[in-house]
Design a protein around this nucleic acid. Structure first.
Lengths: 344, 344
DNA sequence: TTCTGGCACTCGGCTGTTCAGAGTGCCAAA
DNA sequence: TTTGGCACTCTGAACAGCCGAGTGCCAGAA
């Protein structure tokens, strides 16, 4: 008995899979007859119809109107992604092309720019790449420069190639020797450390200086800590908005809120922020917290220079998207960007 | 006779102006009857019809099909902008709001970001703002930092607040004293100078150093010159793409190429590059060199911290736009950004 | 039980027709 | 040169009819 029940369920799942695949391809509600013709399900349309009725009752598919074919619901796509689809790996030539394209990058900006364009092109959707965030990266070097007697510039360089600078006004003149001393001591403690951990390591530093120098030292450290903590600076790059035109027929209505969402860095950051740290995250339709993206799906994943992810990237497309292909592209691109970052 | 001809022309111009205004408002072909009703032209519809026929013959307006109203052509808009429209000044409260909004900016990035959003909001169109270009700005400070024995980082700070950095590998180890010496001499010559003029001023510099140090000096200078010359780095910020949805009825067709154009920084840069240095530039429809923007108009103007323009900004909208209002907003925003830059 | 073929039914979308309204061009008269 | 009148054109909305895809259900077969 149990065996037969499972057998039944298997076929229903096969039907659902077929519906998703067909609908993604044709963009039109798919009926029982067309299904059996295109997929070798080994049963008659009538049987498929019964299965469809069951699937509809369970909320996996939906009928726009009586006497029309079926369309997968968000729940249907969810099941498809979770249990029915396999991430489609990139072909060897594709992988080579990705690798080659990213290899040409000259600096961090360029890496991000190339990545986002590549992703948009591969998936033919809207691509989003977050700059490697400061908090996950480590210090490569910290530089102090006296621009004027009391004006000091601080430059923070991270292992991901990001450069952050800050101006500050010290409470009094700062000598070149003091600055050199301070620079050396800061770097001795901070280089190679995670950004969020640096403040803790430098806590004792002012005590090692002459009392007269301490105000200046404190000012510099305060500015440094501020730069380290600056989370607002998380930036995002976008590409492929032109692909929005292929979104669907009821076009202007769908596209408007999406464009609005894309304009809001905050929304995009939150969107990527919801990406789990391990593995790929797929948010389908109404699963997205942001209302304007309720008719889109977001496929995102972390990427990083080592084992650990320092930032996220992903694509935004219609719920009716090619999930296996998109997921394959996203995963491949994330992997290669990670490699590039690790090498540089 | 001459007097009568001019009189006639005046009325035809009035008719054209009325057509443009009505069409911009309603987005629908405007007929003779509606015209006389809404504008007090003091003549009958039949007369207007005659004028319309003349205007059509001269190519200023156009009839989508027999028995429909008239629509202005690019040529018609051109005449309107050149002779019939007055730039509509911002109201005092609007000016205050602009000023207030821009005053909150904390750094250059923020200024540009706020400007572009403001412009998009005011005009309800797509706004484009170019970062103050390097070539027009002057050197505030040049810093050299040794990251490793042969690895040197160069940081270039301009008076517009922009920071550019470059890594380089020197042919041999570079001592701290040499670096300090070089830094001092470079800054002595370069600070306050226009970027393009700096290379000329530093030409003689290597001669002043020991023969052994010259290769390193040459490397540093080469990198500096490269950073100075880097025009590609001209960046652009964009906002208001969501306004594209209000473009028109034949929507997807119009919007696709525009979105594509907006993705290409090169296209946008060239677009702004075509802006004349003095006064506002309006490019209507096919006047735009880039084909994808053939059904849009671009209103752009230079802005700068002093008398001189260091960059351009503008908006992109449908040819059927409110030219007086848009031009007013663009001019006002450019003026205030200039003030902000001058102050900081 | 589960699957299948058959059958009646529903409904959206396409086609063709009609009709009203807006707009035109032209002409003769003021 | 302007104006009122008139005949004409064309679009777009409204409506009817038809076709076909697709459904649900049922009775019989496996």
């Amino acid at each position: 008995m149990a065996g037969e029940v499972r057998q039944l369920d298997d076929r229903k799942l096969a039907v659902l899979r077929a519906i998703v695949q067909d609908y993604v391809g044709t963009e039109e509600p798919v009926g029982s007859k067309a299904l059996v013709e295109r997929h070798s399900l080994g049963v008659s349309p009538a049987t498929v119809r019964n299965d469809m009725a069951a699937l509809e009752e369970d909320g996996y598919i939906h009928q726009p109107h009586t006497s029309a074919g079926r369309i997968p619901t968000d729940k249907g796509y969810r099941l498809f992604v979770d249990r029915l689809a396999e991430v489609k790996p990139m072909s060897a030539p594709e992988r080579r092309a990705i690798r080659h394209f990213l290899d040409g990058a000259v600096d961090l900006d360029d890496v991000v720019a190339r990545t986002v364009r590549l992703l948009a092109q591969l998936t033919r959707q809207v691509a989003v790449v977050q700059y490697p965030s400061l908090s996950r990266s480590t210090v490569r070097h910290i530089e102090l420069v006296a621009l004027a007697p009391v004006k000091v510039m601080l430059v923070l360089i991270t292992n991901t190639g990001r450069v952050e600078q800050r101006m500050m006004d010290c409470p009094g003149p700062v000598g070149e020797t003091l600055l050199a001393d301070l620079r050396a001591r800061i770097n001795a403690h901070a280089v190679g450390q995670r950004l969020p951990e640096v403040p803790g390591l430098l806590e004792e530093l002012p005590a090692g200086f002459e009392a007269a120098d301490r105000p200046a030292v404190v000012t510099v450290l305060a500015t440094l800590f501020e730069a380290l903590a600056e989370q607002n600076e998380e930036r995002i790059m976008l590409a492929g908005t032109a692909n929005l035109t292929r979104f669907g027929h009821d076009f202007p209505l769908t596209i408007q809120p999406v464009l609005e969402a894309l304009e809001e860095q905050v929304v995009l950051l939150r969107l990527l922020g919801e990406t789990g740290d391990a593995g790929m995250t797929v948010r389908i339709g109404r699963e997205n917290a942001y209302e304007g993206l309720n008719s889109t799906s977001v496929v995102s994943v972390g990427y990083g220079s080592g084992d650990e992810s320092v930032a996220k990237l992903g694509v935004i497309g219609p719920t009716r998207m090619d999930y296996p292909g998109t997921m394959g592209a996203v995963r491949a691109v994330a992997r290669y960007v990670g490699q590039i970052l690790a090498e540089s």
